[in-house]
């Protein structure tokens, strides 16, 4: 049987396959959207103390 031929099984499962495809698409859109919102609102920004420790100590937290 050629792989391109549409079997009766494909017709029967069409709604399931289309639904699953749309669900996965929506999932990707949601993860992307959430990431964009979180990044742009600064949720993933480094805390000032973490930055300043490295910069102020001149490379070593102990000041050596």
């Amino acid at each position: 049987m050629a792989i391109t031929k549409e079997h009766e099984l494909h017709k029967r499962r069409r709604s399931r396959n289309v639904g699953l495809g749309l669900t996965l698409g929506a999932f990707i859109a949601i993860v992307f959207g959430m990431t964009m919102v979180k990044v742009s609102s600064g949720d993933f920004a480094m805390r000032p103390t973490e930055n300043s420790t490295v910069i102020d100590s001149g490379g070593s937290p102990d000041g050596d």
């Binding site: 099984l9 029967r12 499962r13 709604s15 399931r16 289309v18 639904g19 699953l20």
Partner: peptide, 19 residues
Amino acid sequence: SFDPTLTDTQEAQFGDYFA
């Protein structure tokens, strides 16, 4: 997952999972 004995009315559609 292929069961040729299943008929159209028995096999789950997307709506059945939604239900």
